[in-house]
Structures are given as C-alpha cells and as structure tokens.
Write a protein that binds this DNA or RNA. Structure first.
Lengths: 199, 199
DNA sequence: CGGTCTATGGATCGTTGTTCCACACACTGT
DNA sequence: ACAGTGTGTGGAACAACGATCCATAGACCG
C-alpha cells in the first residue's frame, strides 16, 4: 500500500501499541497486531525498535511522561495550587491512583513485569524518577513547614510511593479482601502520613 | 523410557516446575523444559494440568502453603513465641520479606502477573487468604491489648500487607532509589504501625 | 493373570518474535 | 525537475512456543 512517511512512522507505532495495550493487555499485544493497527509493515517495527521489549519500554517511558503531566496538572489544576503541605501530598497520591485506574494496563507495564523477562530501561527509570520527584518536592515542603518529621525527603517519598503502589497493585489485580478500594487506599495513605509525623 | 508411576507424576511435575521457575524465571519456564526436567512426557503435563496457566497456578498455590508455614514457623520458632503484640506483627512482616527474598521468582508468580494473562485461581486465592490470616490474627491481638487503634482487623492487616508488598515489589525489581532495602522495609512497616496507633 | 487405565514419544497445528530479501516509493541535494 | 540514495513494504521463512492427536506399551487393579 501507500508508504508511511518516515516522520510519522514512530509516532504511529507508539500510538497503536499504546491503544492495543489498553485494549487487550500486554498478553494480547503482538508485533503483527501492532503493525496492522499502525498501518505499517511488521518489518518497520524492527527498523525503529530493536525488539518487542524495546517497544514496550518506549510505551512505558511515554506512560511515565503522561504520569508526570497528570500529577502536575490533573484537570488543569496545578498541584501547587493546594496550599496545605499535607493536603498537597494526599492530592498527589490521589492523582497517582486515578492515573492507575484510568490506565490500568499501561500502569502494569510501567510498574509490573507483565511480560516475562521485561524490565524497564535505565532511560525509562530516569523518567520514572521525574514522576517520583513530584512527590519528593511535596514531602520536602511538608518537612520544611514542620508538618512531617525530619528526614531524607527522597527516602520518605519512596516509602509513600511503595505503600501506595502496594495498595494499587492489589486493587488492580483484585487480590485482597476489601470492599471499598478507594477508602482502603485513602486509609493506607493517611496511616503512612500519620506514621511519618503528620497531624 | 521407563514409565513414571502415576502416583509420582504430579509431584514430579510440580517439583520440576518450581525448580525451573527458581532457576530461569517465569519467562524461561516452558512446558517442554518442565517435562524434560521432570523426566516426563510433554503430554503428561496436560493430563494433570489443563494448561500452562493451570500449572503455574498450582505452583503458586504450593507457594502460598510454603509461605504460611514460613510465617508460622520460620527457623522452628513459632510466631506465638513472641509475646509483645507489636513485635509479633513486625516479626511476621519480617518473615514475609525473608520469604520473598529467598524465593523471588516464586513470589513473583504468586503476587505479580509475571506471565501475560495469568491470574491466580479462586482456590489459590483461598490459600493466599490463609497466609494473610496469620497477620490478621496478630493485628487482632494487638487491638485487644490496646496496642493498636480499634478497627476491623482484616482491613488493617490488608493495609499492612499492601504497604509491605509495595516495598518488596520495588526491592525485587530494583526499581527505586534506595540504598539499604532492609532498612527501607523496616521504615515502611514502622511508619504504618505508628500511623495505626502503635507506640 | 487378564483387562483397563494411562504415560509415552512423536508428529502436527497455529501463533509468536525475529530475520531476510527484492522491490518500490519517499526523501535529499543539485 | 531529476537522478541517487535511503527506507518502508510485502512476503516468505526460521526457530520456539503452547497445545492437540495418535498408536503403542507399560503400569495398575480386580
């Protein structure tokens, strides 16, 4: 058929891969299906991405960029708008959950090894760090305001990140014995913050 | 070659699958490799397990049974031996982490969707619940002793479970920005317990 | 010991990730 | 506008995978 302009090739592939991932999950995402959905030859995938893992990594990297944007500006409301430092952290973690629920399969590729042998590249890990840094800043502000116990903001943010991620994972895989997952998530966040010296 | 006695078939397959899983991970675990390692014909796998997912589910189920035993009796020390209710919870969660670190790939199959489309069966979820119930009991005891805020023990135990699991996941996949993972894990556990009313 | 059950081994199918190739179109500089 | 180079296309092909089918022969039970 008509040949796809080189300039659009990569973007088309990435968009198709992300769409397919959202539809059928990492399991149903095949190179042939991506190529068909992107209206591109299977070979073109390998001209742009060394392997399926490499493509998934690009999708994950895009996902972290989306996540950063979502954290900073969900619904057009900048996170800085929230004055109270603790509320700021709570809102940030709330945005984190809403992103996961809105993009469950993408989230799975970003954070879980949904595909055997797949692990995110160092470059993507850098992008992931950017998303964590939003939380690190909020934690640092809360510490400066005396609303959290003193500590290393990065370590404390990572603790909150871990707790939130654990709760989300169980919710996404429906493993666990919880009725109201949203309330459960809030409870975990609140308990962590109390344990870290808030209130 | 010599035919495997029927009575040993299933156990041989499960043992081989668990061994292979520990060695090469879920990605390298193929039906043919399991059959070879178990010294069994590929077809026999399908006589006993409907599919690869079914086999993985059995391995996961065995894993939860091992986990329950480990939680209750690590190193021959019954968990009840620890008198202080909070210490009891801390020790229980410590055992949880040591199990994960000793059996990282098995842990991955049990808790993470390491294989696309794989999810643990309801039967295995029941076994998982048994492992959680160890923590539920410890939480209930702590509440009765007035060492934790009042609440629904199952919900509170699930919160601790989620936080611990989140920390472990980042440690196992080496995603995160932490030097001392053991200390990080302890910090998460301690913060959660403080937030839940201990100390 | 005889009859049934079932493990074996081997072929086979469809799908997957990946590679190879000749061809044709798009892009570049002149 | 035009030739030359770069690169996307289409299709075949490979090895490995999960899964199924089959005849045979060995294990199991009364």
């Amino acid at each position: 058929m008509a040949r796809t302009p080189s300039s659009e090739l990569e973007a088309n592939i990435l968009r198709a891969a992300a769409d397919l991932l959202a539809e059928v999950g990492a399991g149903g995402l095949t190179q042939r299906a991506v190529a068909t959905a992107a209206d591109v030859s299977p070979q073109s995938l390998y001209n742009r991405f060394a392997s399926k893992h490499d493509l998934l990594d690009a999708v994950a990297n895009d996902g972290f960029e989306l996540l950063v944007d979502h954290l900073r500006n969900e619904g057009g409301v900048p996170l800085e708008t929230i004055e109270d430092p603790i509320d700021n952290i709570v809102e940030g973690l709330g945005r984190y959950r809403r992103f996961a629920m809105a993009n469950p399969r993408r989230y799975g590729v970003m954070f879980d090894a949904d595909v055997p042998g797949f692990r995110v590249s160092d470059r993507t890990l850098d992008t992931a760090f950017t998303s964590l840094s939003v939380l690190v800043d909020a934690v640092a502000s809360a510490m400066e305001a005396g609303r959290l116990d003193e500590g290393e903001p990065l370590q404390v943010a990572q603790m909150l990140w871990a707790a939130a991620h654990g709760a989300l994972r169980f919710e996404l895989t429906e493993v666990g014995f919880v009725d109201d997952w949203a309330a459960h998530y809030d409870s975990v966040v609140t308990a962590m913050l109390r344990g870290l010296g808030s209130g």
